[in-house]
Design a protein around this nucleic acid. Structure first.
Lengths: 217, 217
DNA sequence: TGTACATCAGTGAACGCGCGTTCACTGATGTAC
DNA sequence: TGTACATCAGTGAACGCGCGTTCACTGATGTAC
């Protein structure tokens, strides 16, 4: 099957009303995310491809984004916000048991990457460096970007609660939360990159439990 | 500072003697690796850029590689071979103590990524999927690619020795080696992607020790 | 030993393509009078 | 209420660029006789 790339825009697209031009920004972002998720290739997110997907002409993007990199950067930032939101929801929905809450966070993290593999890879691809605000005094999480900070705080909080309830023996929940994040990231990224690695069935728990210093049940 | 891209090849390059044309393949590969390590961007490894770097014209590449993707794939494969070699050397040089040997493997792994961040990211970028041979019965490491299998075996071996000498309480060294690899990968990849994450000082040990189920000293 | 020839390593010009970006523009719509 | 006008959303054509790939070629070198 040959994919025909058409340059025609969806002809019926109504232009936004006066004063509502900013709405297009949202459509452009959505188009970029769709492109990323469906093509599975960051390089497919070109300015022209995004415009085609959004049903507009390429120059129409410039009033909303200074260039192509800015679009990808916005996708990445929104990705981090969504990831943080979903961790938050998962933890909230997990009830009162501190162990369940930590499990829920770990599961939601890996799940996000499984549902949006290419977006996850782009988020952590490094070119856009959204995790850190720069600077980066070693060991000081305050240098994280705002959304990354949220994620780190959710993990740290869940782990601290486990310590408080005697479920974890961690003596440094802040540092161990970073270690846990690294472990989850390793699994999430690897699953997002290659679909056929021979994982043990309980791989999430096998990674998250020791890194969280959970007491053996 | 503006980087001037010159199309001129190094004029003095002597052509290989008759029958030694295959030598150029090595030079092309080396040029691609240099490009990847110095530009820090996989997208910079174009067929033409590789040719410029190698001091030849673009069409000269075709007798040696069917196309640009094949060059990157070869770079990735060589990267896996080098990584496996370095793990092997590090373990061999670490003496007899099983704990030291496992530490050496972990350290060498993270080190490789730190020394060649862009190459590491490309290796695990997923587009080329070099880790798995496909198929991928869950839990069966035999479906790994040859070099990935070597890496996994080194980790499994080091971990098994720790179990044998009472340094690790792992009850499933094969599965825990996968978990350890995932953890090391998470750290290696994240360090290769963003230089300024606020890592705890003992991050490697903080990840590797619990995943290996090392007994607390 | 000398010479014609086949082979081989690599060249140079050319192609069509999609890209990012620019520029002048069009036509609908809200607003001032 | 009617009309002229400014503003705004988005268009369409064009540019120069580097890319991957093709093709016919050149000139050095080993070899057969």
């Amino acid at each position: 099957v040959i994919t025909v790339i058409t340059n025609r825009r969806t002809p019926g697209r109504p232009r936004n009303r006066r004063g509502e031009g900013r709405l297009l920004r949202t459509e452009i972002l959505a188009a970029a995310m769709e492109l990323l998720d469906t093509t599975g290739d960051e390089r497919a997110v070109t300015l022209r491809a995004v415009a085609r997907r959004a049903g507009i002409t390429a120059p129409s993007i410039y009033p909303h984004f200074p260039g192509q990199r800015a679009i990808v950067l916005a996708v990445v930032q929104q990705g981090f916000a969504e990831l943080a939101d979903q961790l938050c929801s998962a933890v909230d929905a997990a009830g009162d048991d501190s162990g369940h809450r930590l499990d829920a966070a770990s599961g939601a993290y890996v799940d996000f990457a499984a549902r949006h593999p290419e977006r996850y890879r782009t988020m952590f691809g490094g070119i856009h460096q959204p995790v850190s605000d720069g600077g980066g005094t070693s060991g000081d999480p305050a240098t994280l970007g705002a959304e990354a900070m949220r994620i780190w705080r959710i993990l740290t909080g869940a782990l601290s609660n486990c310590v408080a309830s005697g479920r974890s023996t961690s003596t440094n929940p802040a540092a161990d939360a970073s270690a846990l994040w690294v472990g989850l990231h390793g699994l999430a990224h690897q699953q997002a990159a290659t679909t056929s690695y021979p994982w043990p069935a309980d791989i999430v728990h096998r990674i998250a439990a020791p890194l969280s210093h959970l007491v053996v049940a």
